[in-house]
Write a protein that binds this DNA or RNA. Structure first.
Lengths: 132, 132
DNA sequence: ATGCATTGAATGCAAGTGCATTTAATGCCG
DNA sequence: CGGCATTAAATGCACTTGCATTCAATGCAT
């Protein structure tokens, strides 16, 4: 019976995650669309901006981004291509490994992120009622 | 400063959800592919099977499914169409509202679900280490 | 009963995603 | 040095998804 009960709890837990994820993702997507961004786009910009805050470099390898963001390598590659087309990031070659690509926030990208961040945080605040 | 700290916590919380969701979803998808099912497919079968366990009827309106599963109405409609093509569910018209559609598990669907469920539960068990 | 707004589900369409493959640059072993 | 396995990123492709629209059935008001 312990088995049955914990199974039920497991399923409940998973459903909870699913539910929070779906609702938050959906709201985020809607909110960010105002700024011409999808949730994934913002996620990438956010990581880049955070990196830029720490050291001034703000240049990530695609691989590093992939490990911090929940996207496949191919999806990320295309996403970066889109962001570049919109002038929000720039792709530059990597001096120490010419296969690699360095992705950096442009001024426009930094600006867009700064614009969108408050709204994103507001949504998170709404979706995760205190006890944070 | 409290503001800054709770913002950080908020972001951490959200990233946590994102991370658990992505990893679990991915594993589930891989695991269920063995049975020719995607994660969404199983989610629907699971709801139907659960309903069938409670009352014998096991016939849901599409709307009811939509509210229990995290998919848009259109995605669900197509998903049901796929499941029907694979013979796992059947669509029947709804007597009290002829616009409505009743979706029911077929025997094959029930069987497939029964086959896949243990693996799904196993994955959940692995992804949510105890304290469930 | 007739007409009109509303609701349930299906469908056209464009976008984003993952898998598998490709292309380019490295590293290593002989 | 030359060839071969390996790694980084880009691309072909098929599939799923969501939004907007469509089509059919209701229900309500006149």
């Amino acid at each position: 019976m312990a088995v049955t009960k914990s199974e039920r709890a497991l399923v409940e837990q998973w459903r909870g995650v699913l539910s929070v994820h779906a609702r938050t993702m959906c709201e985020l997507d809607r909110a960010l669309h105002q700024y011409g961004l999808g949730a994934s786009d913002f996620e990438v910009l956010d990581v880049l901006a955070e990196g830029a805050a720490e050291d001034g470099g703000c240049a990530y390898r695609v691989q590093e981004l992939a490990s911090r963001v929940h996207l496949s390598q191919s999806a990320l590659s295309r996403l970066i291509a889109r962001l570049e087309k919109d002038g929000l990031v720039s792709r530059g070659m990597c001096s120490e490994d010419r296969r690699g690509v360095r992705v950096a926030l442009t001024d426009a990208g930094r600006a867009r992120h700064a614009e969108a961040q408050p709204l994103q945080r507001a949504v998170l605040g709404r979706m995760f009622p205190d006890r944070a």
